[in-house]
Design a protein around this nucleic acid. Sequence first.
DNA 1: GTCTATACACGGATAGAC
DNA 2: GTCTATCCGTGTATAGAC
Lengths: 192, 192
Amino acid sequence: MNDTKARILGTSSDLFRRNGYTGTGLKQVATEARAPFGSIYHFFPGGKQQLGEEVIRTSGEEYARLVFSILDAHSDILEGIEVGFRLAGETLVATDYADACPIATVALEVASTNEVLRVATADVFTSWIDSGSALLRARGFGEADARRLILGFVTSLEGAFVLARALRSTEPLDAAGATVLAAARACLPPRE
Amino acid sequence: MNDTKARILGTSSDLFRRNGYTGTGLKQVATEARAPFGSIYHFFPGGKQQLGEEVIRTSGEEYARLVFSILDAHSDILEGIEVGFRLAGETLVATDYADACPIATVALEVASTNEVLRVATADVFTSWIDSGSALLRARGFGEADARRLILGFVTSLEGAFVLARALRSTEPLDAAGATVLAAARACLPPRE
DNA sequence: GTCTATACACGGATAGAC
DNA sequence: GTCTATCCGTGTATAGAC
């Protein structure tokens, strides 16, 4: 991919997650990406909406890889869940509570106002649920349990991000992690 | 309170939760509230930020009353949790997936951009956690369990709203409810 | 394909008539 | 205290030079 286009996508992703979709201006994107303003419309002839859609889809896919690589790196799924929430908290602290989910802010903003972007966020979430569900089934969970559990995982993580960023505290992430762990244990056969 | 001011607050609350803080214009607020534009600055001399802060605090308190009255109405706390998630889903469907948490969209938008409004959302969430924690302790949960559990409840609900609005489905609310229920059961002494 | 200048609408905010 | 007119900045988008 073209360097300029990649820079525009990257800075847009950062700005959207911090300032939201309506809160981010294209002039601001061009400035921070050190790209001429016209380049935005050169690479994204559909304007802000097309840029938003590509950002949602690419950063959503990227984030899925990040999160599921953590879950997958632990042979004990319970440990993977616990580490996932802990790393999310560490990232949040390290970035001054800015780098949470790359699409959540935009998802809430556009859910009732922009159907094209809403569908993009829905596609991303659907893909997360499908991948995560497959991962859990590979670990021995039944189909219904796997789907319910990964939905519980994602919703807990997303909600914990909302409270953690507002409170500037990782306590919500810790509590959410504990909640998901308890639910996961309830699905597993009791061990030793 | 003055009728005009009340209408401005109510309309703003609706618009903020649907379109977000940056996505809502003051002219739009005046029009939909059938109030003269100048009245906004008459009642909210601090401008959009003061309006935003009052909306966050009042609608946050209102929503706490709604949610906790549901939890409190059931002598069985597990039943209260289950009903809470189910009613949230029914409200979402009835309002075409618009009426979820009144402050979540704004909370994410302002977390990294407006300290006054971030603190307002943090105060609201803190008040929810404190009230909910007290409610659970009154039902026999220990202090640490009560706090962890109510955080799990609120984060799950918030995250489920994000996915439910994006997907236009209540499945995330059902799964989140099941997750919280499993975590709550793990804290309770086994029954009969 | 890079970059600048500009069009046009709408944002928040204010002044001042009534 | 109600309401209108207006200011000025910024928003998205486009035209066109190079």
